[in-house]
Simulated scan of single mutants.
Amino acid sequence: MVLGALGRPVPPIHEIRRGVQAAGGYVEAPEGIRGLIYAGAVTWLAGQGIPARILLDQSAQDVAQLVEGQASLFIASVHPGIRRPETSPTARGGHLVLVFGRDAAGALRLHNPSGDSPGTQADARIPIVRFQDFFAGRGILVG
């Protein structure tokens, strides 16, 4: 998502996964690959010439300020239920989305490739207060 958002060519997803895994971003366990390890992802991004850093203890309002004017991107850890923002999540985190800006009404704009409909995948919109319900308070600031 980050590469495409930055206007760069996007290699096949498994090529990216192998590169991120080699940088320590994924660890294989007997049951499969564990979730993204941020430090390894930041290392891989740096290798692509993309500055990034891990941010913890953030609020949805913090994220909104970070992406204001679309100067930065934020890979946010959210509950996968964000695909249906009208629902109440049972937890926070466990899924990643790319927050890339705000719309005229102030809602966060995000890409969620695993959304279950076009409206929840590319350029999905969610009010900041609803985003907070799904957001784990951590992620990767890109740019």
Score class of each variant (00 low, 15 high):
Ala60Asp: 04
Arg8Gln: 13
Pro118Asp: 12
Ala52Thr: 03
Gly139Pro: 05
Phe135Lys: 00
Thr120Gly: 14
Glu15Arg: 04
Leu55Glu: 14
Ala46Thr: 12
Leu45Ala: 10
Thr43Lys: 12
Ala122Ile: 14
Ser77Glu: 07
Arg125Ile: 10
Pro85Val: 02
Ile13Met: 12
Gly69Ile: 02
Ala107His: 05
Phe135Met: 00
Ala46Asn: 13
Gln121Ser: 12
Gly94Ser: 11
Leu110Lys: 07
Asp103Tyr: 01
Gln132Pro: 02
Glu31Asn: 02
Ile33Pro: 15
Ile33Phe: 15
Asp133Met: 01
Arg130Trp: 01
Gly93Val: 09
Phe135Asp: 00
Thr43Pro: 10
Ala76Met: 03
Ala41Met: 14
Asn112Lys: 08
His14Ala: 06
Gly40Glu: 08
Gly49His: 05
Asp133Tyr: 00
Thr43Val: 13
Ser114Phe: 13
Tyr26Phe: 13
Pro11Lys: 00
Ala23Lys: 02
His79Gly: 02
Thr90Asp: 15
Leu98Asn: 08
His111Asn: 15
Leu55Lys: 07
Ala64Pro: 02
Gly25Glu: 05
Ala23Thr: 05
His14Trp: 09
Pro30Asn: 06
Pro30Arg: 03
Arg17Pro: 00
Ser59Val: 02
Pro12Leu: 05
Arg17Ala: 04
Leu36Phe: 09
Gly81Cys: 05
Phe74Asp: 00
Ala136Phe: 03
Gly7Asp: 07
Gly19Ala: 04
Arg102Ala: 07
Asp103Glu: 05
Leu96His: 13
Ile140Phe: 04
Gln132Gly: 02
Asp103Lys: 00
Phe134His: 03
Thr43Ser: 14
Ala29Asp: 11
Tyr26Lys: 04
Ile33Asp: 15
Phe100Tyr: 14
Val42Glu: 13
Thr90Met: 12
Arg125Gly: 11
His111Lys: 06
Ser88Gly: 10
Ser88Met: 11
Asp123Ala: 12
Ile50Ala: 07
Ala107Met: 01
Gly94Lys: 08
Gly35Arg: 04
Arg92Pro: 08
Ala46Tyr: 06
Gly137Val: 03
Met1Ile: 05
Pro30Met: 03
Ile54Gln: 04
Arg53Trp: 03
Ala64Met: 02
Glu86Arg: 08
His14Cys: 02
Ser114Pro: 06
Phe135Gln: 00
Gly137Lys: 00
Val10Asn: 09
Asp133Val: 01
Trp44Gln: 10
Gly115Thr: 12
Gly32Asn: 09
Gly106Ala: 01
Leu6His: 09
His111Gly: 09
Ile13Ser: 14
Val42Gln: 10
Leu36Thr: 15
Gly101Asp: 05
